Simulated scan of single mutants.
Amino acid sequence: LTKTAFSDLLGVKKQNLNGLMKNPTLETIRKFASVLEVEPWQLFASSQEVQETKNTITCPHCGKPIELEVK
């Protein structure tokens, strides 16, 4: 994804994207994540951390991760 394409998806000028990326607000981070169709925390996680969460869910009672096996 190029800066131009990303700025188009965000609805901002490419020149303004640089400023948004240097000092993003929480609202900006949420907008970036929404455009990229990921959770905001995934913008700061390693690719391994993101991959690990694809096969787990969190128990609503105890908060521990539950691994899923897809067949």
Results as ranks from 00 to 15, higher is better:
residue 3 K to V: 04
residue 5 A to W: 06
residue 6 F to V: 00
residue 7 S to K: 08
residue 8 D to R: 14
residue 9 L to E: 11
residue 10 L to V: 09
residue 11 G to M: 01
residue 11 G to F: 03
residue 11 G to Y: 02
residue 13 K to T: 03
residue 14 K to R: 14
residue 14 K to V: 15
residue 14 K to P: 06
residue 15 Q to S: 14
residue 16 N to M: 10
residue 17 L to F: 01
residue 19 G to H: 10
residue 20 L to F: 10
residue 21 M to P: 01
residue 22 K to S: 12
residue 22 K to I: 08
residue 24 P to R: 06
residue 25 T to M: 01
residue 26 L to E: 14
residue 27 E to R: 12
residue 28 T to E: 05
residue 28 T to S: 14
residue 29 I to F: 06
residue 29 I to Q: 00
residue 31 K to L: 15
residue 32 F to T: 11
residue 34 S to H: 14
residue 35 V to I: 14
residue 35 V to F: 00
residue 35 V to C: 01
residue 36 L to T: 08
residue 36 L to S: 06
residue 36 L to W: 08
residue 40 P to D: 08
residue 41 W to T: 02
residue 42 Q to P: 03
residue 42 Q to V: 05
residue 43 L to C: 08
residue 44 F to S: 01
residue 45 A to N: 06
residue 46 S to D: 10
residue 46 S to C: 06
residue 49 E to D: 15
residue 49 E to W: 03
residue 51 Q to D: 13
residue 52 E to R: 04
residue 53 T to Y: 06
residue 54 K to M: 09
residue 55 N to V: 08
residue 55 N to W: 08
residue 56 T to S: 04
residue 56 T to I: 11
residue 57 I to T: 10
residue 59 C to P: 00
residue 59 C to Q: 03
residue 62 C to R: 03
residue 63 G to Q: 01
residue 63 G to C: 03
residue 66 I to R: 10
residue 68 L to T: 02
residue 69 E to H: 13
